[in-house]
Amino acid sequence: MKKILLLLADGFEAAEASVFTDVFGWNKWEGDRSTELVTVGLREQVKCTWNFTIIPERVISDIDVEEFDALAIPGGFEEAGFYNDAFDERFLGVIRYFHASQKPIASICVASLALGKSGILQDRKATTYSHPTSHRQDQLQSFGANVQNVPIVHDGHIITSSNPATGFNVAFLLLEQLTSEANVKRVKDLMGFEI
């Protein structure tokens, strides 16, 4: 059984987290049944961007990161405190572990800024929130990333994306890395996606 750590920061977007819980939940019950996703936060309760509060299954201080095979991180809003947790050294330390171990890392939208802040995107291709009114791509570049203006960037074991609309595609890419293309097609079909 491959375990995915869904790392949640205060201010995360629930829709971006839910693509991972749904895709990996469908795989656990209806796909090849080889994955388990575990929600983890810095504290016992985490509040999403729109004030929906969740209780993660585990607190970061109580986990052994070595028991996990992949990392998934949804983005969030600065106004909701996302970067307070996403730039916290405990959060960044988890990212650095997965990178050093060359385990898959998938981020959606501005979650790539936490990857950048951790130092793992230096001289790597990546993307982040790309709306013309946003300065987030400049911020990602300031962390040393080679910013690509495309919806999803897959550079080695790291997946980054440019907005919430990419969420399902990012989750399916991560599932493919951990299982197989044929399994992803099966899960997509069962979930009603065109394949």
Rank of each mutant, 00 (worst) to 15 (best):
E16A: 04
E16S: 06
S18F: 08
S18R: 07
S18M: 14
V19H: 03
F20R: 11
T21A: 04
D22W: 01
F24A: 04
G25V: 05
G31W: 00
D32W: 00
S34I: 01
E36I: 04
E36S: 04
V38L: 01
V38Y: 00
V38R: 01
T39Y: 00
V40D: 09
L42C: 04
E44I: 01
E44R: 11
E44Y: 01
E44C: 00
E44F: 01
E44V: 03
E44L: 02
K47T: 13
C48I: 00
T49M: 09
W50R: 11
N51L: 11
F52W: 09
T53F: 07
I54Y: 05
I54S: 01
I54E: 06
I55S: 07
I55C: 02
P56H: 07
I60L: 15
I60H: 08
D62H: 15
I63K: 11
I63A: 06
I63S: 06
D64H: 07
D64S: 13
E66Q: 14
A72C: 10
G75F: 11
G76T: 14
E78Q: 15
F82I: 11
Y83W: 10
N84K: 15
R90M: 10
F91E: 03
F91S: 02
L92R: 14
G93M: 08
V94S: 08
R96I: 10
Y97R: 09
F98W: 13
H99D: 15
H99R: 06
A100C: 00
A100Y: 04
Q102V: 03
P104S: 14
S107V: 11
C109L: 12
C109P: 12
V110L: 13
A111I: 11
A111Q: 12
L113P: 06
G116I: 05
G116T: 03
I120V: 15
I120P: 04
I120Q: 02
I120S: 02
L121K: 09
K125T: 03
K125Q: 13
A126M: 03
A126P: 05
A126D: 03
T127K: 02
T127W: 02
T128D: 10
Y129R: 07
Y129H: 13
S130W: 01
H131M: 05
H131I: 01
P132S: 06
T133Y: 09
T133E: 13
S134Y: 07
S134H: 05
S134N: 05
H135D: 12
R136I: 06
R136G: 00
R136V: 03
Q137W: 05
Q137P: 08
Q139G: 00
Q139L: 15
L140N: 09
L140Y: 07
L140W: 08
Q141H: 06
S142D: 14
S142W: 06
S142E: 15
G144R: 02
A145F: 06
N146M: 10
V147E: 03
Q148L: 12
Q148R: 14
N149Y: 00
